[in-house]
Design a protein around this nucleic acid. Structure first.
Lengths: 205, 205
DNA sequence: GTCTATATTAAGATAGAC
DNA sequence: GTCTATCTTAATATAGAC
């Protein structure tokens, strides 16, 4: 299964292989041997570059988290878009992005639950995005009569739920809807706008 | 950590211990020794009663799945409640139930993704609940003008998303909302009605 | 049915040659 | 930097005494 590319250095080759295995199988389900096989090298090299499984995992996790976080921060901290615009933008772009990395949500949430230490590390490293601006904006639009009364925290949770859950629960959803991979892909395609429409319809006056 | 109760037989004691460990740590993260310790017996007994880790896990997984499935089937197959009533009932009861078993959603979805074989086993054993009745009912209420136009499949996914995702993502949500366990509990309490209100508001004409 | 002791295999990690 | 060979530990599983 060697996917070695000559224009990549070994460290990057290892990282790419590790990402794929870790994200699909999680920390506990991953074997260093499998990463080595996928990278087309041997186990000793993994330790040469990343010292231990824990450290390699941490590097992979941080990269995955770093892909999710800025996209969330962006809609939370932006001061120019309306809530409706944020919801439509976020839904479309996040769904497009996660479609290309469908294992990431389960990976990140599962590992965060498994190891509460990650939370503190992230908090200390760069902190979590704050809901302050988003909440203020929601309150203002409610005040103005643009939106029905709703709590910003709850709206934010709903937004994440509707965008991320379908990927986490894809096997169950496929089972209940009798959908194959192609059907599921189409369903997700629809959600890029349908999920946003649903939210807007719930909150717009 | 022995939790042995004299009114339980060994098989049940093992099952209870196994449930707790497997649901928190997953198949790969669980050690038979840890289950034995929690049950207050030794490892050999696990094999005496359940033969192997795989079989013990399967028993635990099936029990967890059997807790989720009937509650979903019920709202899907019921012919007496309106869609609005179903949404309110389901949201309230499902959230109450999952609050008592907060590890189950991540456990079930993670393991289903990890091992696609489970899907086929479940399908063969008793099949998945069908969306037929639910979809027909949604279409009828849309037709009558009770509901805004919406696809039953998408509505069902939204319903599951809003109810299950907060539990799966609880560490992230706590981080972003700066919420401790008590805050989070209260947030979930609110969602028992707020999530249903949100959905109703999105679809009701 | 329950225990202790042990077999067997697998996994992470390292030593040392090239 | 990269490889092969090996160390060490830990995990599942079983044998056999009581």
């Amino acid at each position: 299964m060697a996917t070695k590319k000559t224009d990549q250095n070994t460290e990057e080759i290892i990282m790419d292989a590790a990402k794929e295995i870790f994200q699909q199988k999680g920390m506990d389900g991953t074997r260093m041997q499998e990463i080595a096989d996928k990278a087309g090298i041997n186990k000793a090299m993994l330790h040469y570059y990343y010292r231990s499984k824990d450290l390699l995992f941490e590097a992979v996790f941080n990269k995955a988290f770093a892909l999710l976080a800025p996209r969330i921060s962006k809609i939370l901290n932006d001061e120019t878009l309306t809530i409706e615009e944020k919801i439509r933008d976020f839904t479309y772009n996040y769904t497009s992005f996660i479609s290309k990395h469908p294992y990431i949500p389960d990976f990140v949430f599962h590992e965060m639950s498994r190891n509460p230490g990650f939370l503190d590390k992230i908090r200390k490293a760069k902190g979590f995005p704050s809901l302050e601006i988003f909440n203020r904006q929601v309150a203002e639009e409610v005040e103005k009569g643009v939106l029905k009364p709703i709590d910003g925290d709850q709206l934010f949770i709903n937004l994440l739920s509707l965008n991320l859950f379908p990927f986490i629960a894809s096997p169950l959803i496929k089972g209940i809807l009798r959908a194959d991979d192609k059907d599921f892909k189409q369903l997700i395609e629809l959600r890029k706008t349908a999920a946003a429409d649903f939210i807007i319809s719930a909150i717009k006056k």
